Each structure stands twice: as structure tokens, then as C-alpha cells.
Computed example of a mutant assay.
Amino acid sequence: MSVIDNTHERLLPVPATVAGALLDRIGRPGDPLWPSPTWLPMRLDQPVAVGATGGHGPVRYQVSAYRPGRMVEFTFDPRIGLTGTHTFEIDDHGDNACVLRHRLTAEATGWMRLGWATLIGACHDTVLEHLLDNAEHAAGGTVGHPVRYPWRARLAVRFESVQISATSVPSQESLIAAALPRPDLADAYAARVGPGAATDPQTWADAIFRNPPAAVVALLRLRNVLVAPFGIERGDRSAFDTITRTDREVLLGTDAGHLDFRASVLVTPDDDGVTVTLSTHAAARTRGGRVYLALVRMFHPVVVRAMLRRAATEAVQPRPQTRAAHAT
């Protein structure tokens, strides 16, 4: 048997009623406590009440006890390898202060015994300290000692909180379809991140194209060297200049002698996060352009995925709340 008894707590400079109002919103859209987009959002299928079910990522649980503004107890689905509860509670600490506490008491079974010891325990501790930072910031506007993310938690964020997948190019209503309707190359990839990430498409376009991975930069430099003898223009940053935009989409690209290129960054937010779709259209103008596109097809998916993943990973990196002015 492997019993876990894990507690985190924070003194908040507000009455219990104020902290309780924050706690009562947990697991719902606009939740002020859960550290998203750094971590996959915590979601319940209804406002906090006994019987509400949900979880975060693969961790599933059900509200088993609830006192509004004071306490929420969740019972784990034992299929995840934890048999027990995790509980938020608020205790008075004088007239104008309170303690927000989280306690996990459970037996780890199966794979969870090893998982908790090697990775999950460190991630749990980091999530809870970040959540308490959010509570402290909401209560007083500053945080005395912001959480520091250990390497294991950073690794988990990188692989858990960003999802990249191939998708279809957006419909005829999109800017890219109208700009280059008969492409020789057309593809799209989508990144999914949690709520709280940027929703401005220009912010995402800049993150994708102005700050690519080092390996992509090296490939682009190599490309410029290799294509020069064949009369193909060298690429530069102007190829990714914004042509036009809407509230949800940015269209970038250029017309060159060998081909026309367009890229679209489309941002679709909802209650559970943000989907960023990066689409590419290219149309050859010459025989050399067609040969060039045939070669590009071999590397293009890897390059585009790498650029999109880097931007999405940067978007979910932990950014602890503001440190208090008196903190050292």
C-alpha cells in the first residue's frame, strides 16, 4: 500500500467570504484559480455541487461534499490509480484574513505508485502552489514568493498542455482560401492550448514566424544557399509580412518569381481553450517552382509543426504572478 497525504495552504489577506467566492467558481469557465493555460483546464460538468463530475486531463473525480464558500471535496475515480479524496477548504484567520488549504489523501495503486514518485507528485505540488499564487494575487494583487517550476513540471507542461494535429484548411470563408484559391500545396495544422492563452491572431503569427526554432532557422539558411544557383529568390522575413487580417485571422505571404505563398493564422477561442490553425497555400508559377514545391513537400510538415509547437509551448510557459514589492 502507498498512502499519499499531501497538504498545501496559503494565508490570504481577505475575509473568508472573498476567498470563498473564488473557490465557488472552480472548474467553470473563467475559473480564477486554476493555472491555465500552463496546465490543461480543470472542468466540471456543472457549477460546483455534490454529484458534479469532471477533472483535469486524465485525472477524473466527482464532487462528494460541498459547503458553499467554505469547502469542496472531490473523490477520485479509482480507475486513475488513486482511491481517496482531494479537498479545498477555507478557514478564518481573524476578521480580514483566511487560509486556503488543499489536502490530498489517497491510496496510490498500480502504475500510480511509480508515477506519483517519479513525476505526478512534483507536478501536483507545482500546480497547487501556482493555484495558491493565483488566489493570493486575486486577493491582494501581488504574490510574496511565486512558485518556481522544477524541471519535471516544465517537462510535463511541454508534453501535456500543447496538442498539435493535422487538420483541414479552413472553409471558403477564410482569408487564405480567397487569396490563393487553387494551390499546388495546401495543408493545415492546429494547436490546442488551454484557456487564458492569447486570442489575437497577430500575436500568434508573430510568435510562429518571428521566433522559429533554431533548427528551422538553420534549414531556411541552407535553403537560401541551395536555391541560389537555380534562379530561385532567397527568402527573408518579408515573406511572412502581414497582408490583411480580421479579428480572428491573419493572412501573411508574398509573391515570388517561382511561386506565390500564403499562410493563415486562425484563432478560435472557446470556454475550454484556444485552437490556433496554421494553414499554408503555395502555387507554382514556373517549372522550377514546381520542382521546388516537390522538394519542399518532404520537409514542410516537419517545419510547420515545429514552428507551431514552439509558439504554443511558449504560450503555456508558466508566468508566475507579480512578486510583492517587499519580497526578497
Rank of each mutant, 00 (worst) to 15 (best):
S238F: 06
V296R: 04
A282I: 15
F230C: 02
S264L: 05
A325T: 11
T322P: 14
V267E: 03
F240G: 03
E233S: 15
H258C: 14
R287H: 09
R305G: 00
T322L: 12
T246Y: 03
P318Q: 05
D247V: 11
I232N: 05
L293A: 10
P269R: 04
F230M: 07
V227D: 04
V302F: 15
V316D: 00
L226F: 13
M298E: 10
V316S: 02
R262H: 07
V227A: 06
G289L: 04
R297M: 05
A256H: 13
V227S: 06
G257R: 15
H326Q: 11
R297T: 09
T244K: 10
R223Y: 13
L222W: 14
V304M: 14
D241S: 15
L295H: 09
P269I: 04
R262N: 08
Q317Y: 12
L226P: 03
P269D: 06
R223P: 08
L251K: 01
A311H: 00
H258P: 06
L226M: 13
P229A: 09
Q321E: 11
S264Q: 10
G289N: 07
R248L: 14
S279T: 03
T275F: 01
R237M: 10
V250T: 09
G253H: 04
A306M: 11
P320F: 03
A284E: 09
T322C: 07
I243G: 03
M298D: 08
E249K: 04
A228W: 15
L226T: 04
A294M: 11
H326E: 13
V250H: 00
T275D: 07
R310I: 01
D236I: 01
D247Y: 03
T246V: 09
A294K: 12
D271I: 08
D271Y: 08
L222I: 08
M307H: 08
P320D: 01
A324T: 13
G231S: 03
G253I: 05
D272R: 12
T246D: 07
R319Q: 12
V265L: 05
L295T: 10
A315N: 00
P269W: 07
D241M: 09
V291P: 05
H300E: 14
P318E: 04
G253D: 04
V274I: 07
T313D: 06
P301V: 01
A282G: 02
A228G: 10
S264M: 05
E314W: 03
V225M: 15
L278T: 01
T313Q: 11
P269Q: 04
V265S: 02
F230R: 05
R319I: 08
L259H: 11
A263Y: 06
T322V: 14
R319P: 01
A327G: 07
T246L: 05
M307D: 09
A228T: 14
A312D: 00
T268N: 11
D270Y: 05
G288T: 12
R245Y: 02
A306G: 06
S264E: 11
V316I: 12
A312I: 00
